[in-house]
């Protein structure tokens, strides 16, 4: 068996790489695929917190590389989903503890046992990014509808194109606020795609539940009510080759809004 190795990157910090990794990983595992998440953000690890696995980590990526333990020993099984494993980053080291070849080797090894190997990339384009991308053959670029994030995403896409081993890269637009888009206060999904000229993998709405889920250590895809969770589930399906329509983010939640929209559409019809 040879699994797919996907790096989740963005260039800019704080756009939701780690949240996206945790949610896509959990969503893929929920669908029955075996998934391993690798946190490559050595020294600033967060992925374990989002999955609620912080208290289970004994060995880390750096321990594996420095041969203090076997790879299997360092994999932490998720407490909810047995298909999902985490390979945590060391908190007490820095990015120079890992080299590109070493990470590549680990990815090759994990590829044999898992359907998906997801790499959570650190922010920036320095060694941490280079390490994370080295092992991957596919990339997911996360961005938000902000000029700065889009600029950084553009830079990242350029770097990914320059790498021969990256066969495919797709875009996830995070934290979209449909109401702000409607009032022209935020760039729309189309604007972003027109700027970046990149295939769209999914659009994730801004959702307050993401904040609670981060604090609780439970990814949003486990919460049915969460719209962001639903969007991540759809992204996971698209990664697995299913054709899923994009969620209509303009859909108002309350009844009054629905009535308003209905009359609006009548008005347009006339």
């Amino acid at each position: 068996m040879s699994g797919r190795v996907i790096v989740i990157t963005s260039g800019k910090g704080g756009v939701g790489k780690t949240t996206t990794s945790a949610n896509i990983g959990t969503a893929l595992a929920k669908s029955g695929a075996s998934v391993v998440l690798i946190d490559t953000d050595i020294g600033l690890r967060n992925l374990d917190l989002l999955l609620g696995l912080e208290n289970r980590i004994v060995y880390t990526l750096v321990d594996v590389i420095e041969e203090r333990c076997k790879l299997k020993q360092a994999l932490v099984k998720d407490k909810r989903n047995p298909n999902l494993c985490l390979l945590a980053a060391a908190q007490t080291r820095d990015k120079s503890a890992v080299s590109q070849d070493q990470l590549k080797e680990i990815c090759e090894e994990l590829k044999e046992d898992f359907d998906f190997v997801l790499l959570d990339c650190p922010a920036g384009i320095e060694q941490g990014f280079q390490n994370a991308v080295a092992g991957a053959t596919e990339a997911i670029v996360v961005t938000t509808p902000e000029v700065s994030a889009i600029r950084d995403a553009d830079r990242i896409i350029g770097l990914l194109q320059a790498r021969e081993e990256i066969e495919d890269y797709k875009l996830v637009i995070n934290r979209v606020r449909p109401q702000m888009v409607q009032t022209n206060d935020m760039l729309s999904v189309d604007d972003v795609i027109n700027t970046l000229h990149c295939d769209l993998l999914g659009v994730v709405p801004d959702d307050t539940y993401i904040i609670t889920s981060t604090n609780k250590g439970v990814p949003a895809v486990n919460e049915e009510k969460s719209l962001a969770g639903k969007a991540y589930l759809n992204i996971a399906k698209r990664i697995q080759g299913e054709d899923v329509p994009f969620i209509d983010l303009d859909e108002p939640k309350d009844i009054l809004g629905k009535i308003k929209k209905f009359f609006k559409s009548l008005g347009k019809g006339e």
Partner: peptide
């Protein structure tokens, strides 16, 4: 000394 809840290792599959 008095006891307080024990923290024990219940499902450390991956941990030796």
């Amino acid at each position: 000394k008095n006891n307080s809840p024990i923290i024990s290792n219940d499902e450390a599959d991956e941990i030796i």
